[in-house]
Design a protein around this nucleic acid. Structure first.
Lengths: 152, 152
DNA sequence: GTTAATTGATTACATTTGTAAACGAAGGAG
DNA sequence: CTCCTTCGTTTACAAATGTAATCAATTAAC
């Protein structure tokens, strides 16, 4: 497991990272162009975010003549994981299942996605528990309001 | 569908909302107590967030003598949905399936959760498509980098 | 009835985030 | 060898966010 410490990444910075994750190697010009189109950002705006990301180590800048070739200092996979972790930190651990179910219902999926989900679910079937312990403190979850621990 | 416009809710505010969603009716004292324990916030800090939430209409304040009884002005369900929407807005629509699969693998689920997920998945099986269209702009997703539209 | 404790409102302030202009060095055009 | 362009760096600045002290009005306690 890479260390990949809990890096905070803002919405705007995420846009930059997506470009770099996609292109793998990118010049500032390329990044600027993409975000000019998508976000209508002025070149200076994109430059600011590039600078901040480099300072935080999330973007690597390899000198190339007088300019830089940028690449990702954090992985896309790890970053998406952090984002999902953050989401689940916001809700009761017992509500995770329901929340994921809602996501499935809402998402547009391919046949292959469905197969993938089925595989993941099958794996879970063998290791699911009777009752997921609630991780909330009293007053922040109904599990502990009603003594019977029925959440929602 | 309720209007429930896209309310932005910060991490700190989310903590307040969780208490109110749980207790349904709460005094500032109760909210303060919970977050004193969980977040080690000074009473003044919690008061600030309560004030901001009331101003934004996310908390309703019903006068009760000289104080207020607070209740939620936005639903927990809707708010969790907004949070998940935000997550999926950050990634390519074609990556949603894989991301959800990862969540399933990582989550601790109950037998009932598994049944719930299975039901949601079964429903999807009939309405899944061959290829999920990519919603990214060129340069921000590999689907459009390689002409063959294979994403990841 | 005066005093102490509550509670909401006001004010404060550093940091982060979004948005961008301006500046300076270095390279390319002619 | 100058001049314009490009690219990174510096500076700017408002709004949002986290964190909290203080103040003022009430109410509860004695």
């Amino acid at each position: 497991m890479s260390v990949e410490e809990k890096v905070e990444i803002t919405d705007a910075e995420w846009e930059i990272m997506r470009v770099v994750w996609t292109l793998e190697k990118a010049t500032s010009k390329e990044i600027i162009e993409v975000l000019q189109v998508k976000k209508d950002w002025k070149p200076a705006t994109t430059k600011t975010f590039i600078g901040r990301l480099v300072k935080k180590g999330m973007l690597l800048a390899e000198p190339q003549g007088n300019k830089f070739i940028y690449s990702a200092g954090i992985s896309e996979k790890g970053s998406v994981e952090s984002a999902t972790d953050r989401l689940f930190d916001q809700i009761c651990s017992r509500a995770a299942g329901k929340t994921i179910a809602d996501m499935i219902s809402k998402a547009l999926l391919s046949h292959e996605d469905v197969r993938l989900l089925q595989t993941a679910l099958d794996a879970k079937a063998t290791e699911s528990v009777d009752v997921v312990p609630c991780n909330c403190i009293p007053g922040q979850c109904r599990c502990k309001k009603d003594h019977n621990m029925i959440c929602h």
